[in-house]
């Protein structure tokens, strides 16, 4: 693998940061050069957030550009639609089928597009959708949506499962580790 460009897109508060940290730990374990670009501050508060993770032999810019993402993990349907153009030809998108209405929709100034997953699947080849919220709930905490999605993603890379589990153990706080390991398995086996 020469390089891997990953994007995590979602709504502030969904745990994209933690997931990106696990990805960074995975890259380091595999001795790749890696950069992870995060969003903090104002835009984090329930806004549209994007985190970039780039692996490779040498990484310069931390940003993934339009048409250059190998994998996009979308934590929410509308965010999947917003960022799908960043996929490269043959790139893969994993979509959590959760919906969170943005404020313009809540106040009736805009409409939440219908049948997003169907449309994305019609137009792009490598799209997988999953009810990560349900799986996370079954594992014991809806906040584990991020790790369920990581599990799903892990399966679609060539990186060994053990490496992922080690990375989760390093990054996730001890007291929620068990729930998150369960969540990883749930995503991996879904």
């Amino acid at each position: 693998m020469e390089k891997l460009n990953i994007m995590l897109v979602g709504v502030g508060g969904q745990g994209t940061l933690l997931a990106s940290r696990v990805l960074g730990a995975v890259a380091l374990k595999k001795s790749f050069d890696v950069k992870v670009s995060e969003v903090h501050g104002m835009s984090q508060r329930g806004g549209s957030v994007v985190t970039y993770v780039k692996f490779g032999s040498k990484v310069y810019s931390p940003l993934v550009e339009k048409g250059d993402a190998d994998i996009i993990m979308a934590f929410e349907q509308l965010e999947a639609l917003r960022w799908v153009e960043y996929l490269k030809d043959g790139g893969k998108m994993l979509i959590n089928d959760q919906k969170i209405n943005p404020m313009p929709v809540i106040i009736g100034k805009a409409k939440y597009p219908e049948n997003i997953i169907e449309k994305v699947k019609e137009n792009y080849n490598n799209i997988v959708s999953i009810d990560a919220l349900k799986l996370a709930k079954e594992c014991g905490n809806i906040k584990a949506v991020n790790i369920v999605l990581l599990g799903l993603m892990a399966k679609s890379t060539h990186i060994e499962k053990d490496v992922w589990i080690e990375a989760i153990k390093e990054v996730v706080p001890q007291k929620v580790l068990d729930i998150n390991l369960k969540a990883f398995e749930a995503g991996y086996n879904s």
Binding site: Q44, G47, K66, R82, P102, A110
Partner: peptide, 20 residues
């Protein structure tokens, strides 16, 4: 210019940050 094809024509509403 980087050419990306817009395959889906739905208007994607913006998602500004909000109070929690």
């Amino acid at each position: 210019k980087v050419e990306t094809k817009t395959l889906i024509n739905d208007v994607v509403p913006v998602r500004p940050p909000v109070m929690c």
